[in-house]
Design a protein around this nucleic acid. Structure first.
Lengths: 138, 138
DNA sequence: TCCTACACTAGACAGAGTCTAAGTCAAGAT
DNA sequence: ATCTTGACTTAGACTCTGTCTAGTGTAGGA
């Protein structure tokens, strides 16, 4: 994640304690935290960090493409730091667990041009839903 | 849509004026209204209908599978009555226009079992994003 | 070390959705 | 046709998520 801090500095970001902590909290695989969860974990290390700063920092990370915003449940958005490898999400309909999964082939190719209605299609978002092993046996 | 009213009666629903109006408002193709829009249109015909009733009715229609809930923008959910024909959504990133599009093949098949991690996968939700013809030229 | 533009904070505000308590009414029973 | 009852509806308070603002603090260049 220090890579990330270097990249941010390269973009002219001031490296404040708050931004560092938010970046650290988001480090790791299969991380899909809500803004409030990021705030709670950041506040554990830096108690005076405010919600607004967490929202601002997350928004900035999203807008420069370092983090992806995911809304799998229509409630709070979740933030996924695994932005550099294209992937999709597999969500448990009961407990809400989210896993990153990897596409076989380019999902964009599955939309025939006759179904594009003149749109310039540039992205596709795929969410698989079902029951995770735990919830399936319960 | 009177089909729908029959199906609801078959499920033991009381056919109230409010439920009838909500069902009528949702009738049609490429309808993707927010709950507030449904409420506004319903109130045009039945001024005393409350927001809570609209939310309740929409929730009931979703839970029996007559209507699909779509959240394409992370803000208000939208309600899509075209629930009986499987389809996906094509969304303009600038103006938010939504079109229904139809898959070629079963998108569920594109997730290899090695990428299912023991989940029982039953649904897939696909959203294509890009610019609509209007926004692309502007 | 000083300066200043950028960043941070607390808290008010806004939008979407849920909940509750009290009143209303659809539809089966009489 | 009227009664009865529990499901349905209502208004409005409340919660949750996210945004905005005005004032304060500070990173990093001069």
């Amino acid at each position: 994640m220090s890579d990330l801090l270097q990249r941010l500095r390269g973009r002219g970001w001031r490296l404040t304690a708050q931004r560092r902590v938010v970046a650290e909290v988001l480090d790791g695989d299969h991380v899909h935290l809500t803004a409030d969860e990021v705030h709670a974990r950041a506040a554990a290390r830096l108690p005076e960090i405010s919600r607004a700063t967490v929202y601002n920092t997350l928004g900035e990370l999203v807008s420069i493409g370092e983090v992806i915003e995911v809304s799998t449940d229509g409630r709070a958005k979740r933030y996924d730091p695994n932005a550099h490898r294209p992937h999709q999400h597999l969500v448990c309909s009961r407990c809400g667990t989210i896993r990153d999964v990897h596409p076989s082939g380019d999902p964009l190719a599955h939309l025939p041009s006759s179904e594009r209605f003149g749109f310039t299609v540039s992205e596709v978002e795929v969410t698989y839903r079902g029951l995770c092993p735990n919830c399936a046996t319960a």
